[in-house]
Amino acid sequence: MAQHAAEGTKPEVLFWVGCAGSFDARAQKVTKAFVKILNAADIDFAILGNEESCTGDPARRAGNEFVFQMTAIQNIETLNGYDIKNIVTACPHCFNTLKNEYPALGGNYNVIHHTQYLNQLFTDGKLSVQGGAFKGRKVTYHDSCYLGRANGIYEVPRELLKQLDIELVEMKRCKTNGLCCGAGGAQMFKEDEPGDKRINTERVEEALGTGADVVAANCPFCITMLSDGIKAEEKQDEVAIYDISELIIQSM
């Protein structure tokens, strides 16, 4: 972004990478897949790089409003400084916070999730797939809570999956009834409270029950949780979990 600013140009869109997308080895693959698609579609985008900070979602949900405000206000200063209007992100937690919570702090942007963005690229004809690698394969889609219930986006990711000619098999708990992966509300950063089972195990059992060999997701934290669950069931050789952007890049 600094480069754009120095050249006095403005990108079409700012790609908000997020902590997971920047640092987590698995989520970095999603970041790269999404960037490759953006490049293939010839989109002029920018990232903030080291000027980006955590949006503050886990801090706020844990109850730590001070830490949330500090990182959020800093981000808003940065974004407003570059006069950013459009933001796309591959993380539904970043998406939700930027879209729904930053306005109250003085940060107003047009924020969309990467599944919405990709769907738009298909609609605009900037992106196409060639009867790809997943044609005819059974895929189940896991709704993340922050894209789904928190923001009511259920159909866009499914429309996107249809582009890949896959056979979409739904889990019993899907869309508004979707079951959480267990990571939200800052659970990602702590041990589970005592119980009978891990939430990701419960979810993975349901996903495996569909007979799908690919689980499609839209959130880096869901991917971590569900991958762990699949490994715990020792099914990692039979069932793969991918972000939708990864399914697309493999079909291009």
Partner: peptide
Amino acid sequence: DWVPMFTSIENSGSVWQLPDSRE
């Protein structure tokens, strides 16, 4: 368990305490 996450966001702007660059 949450303390490292809080300190990390506060100090390095990331949920994890990582020395790497975001790029």
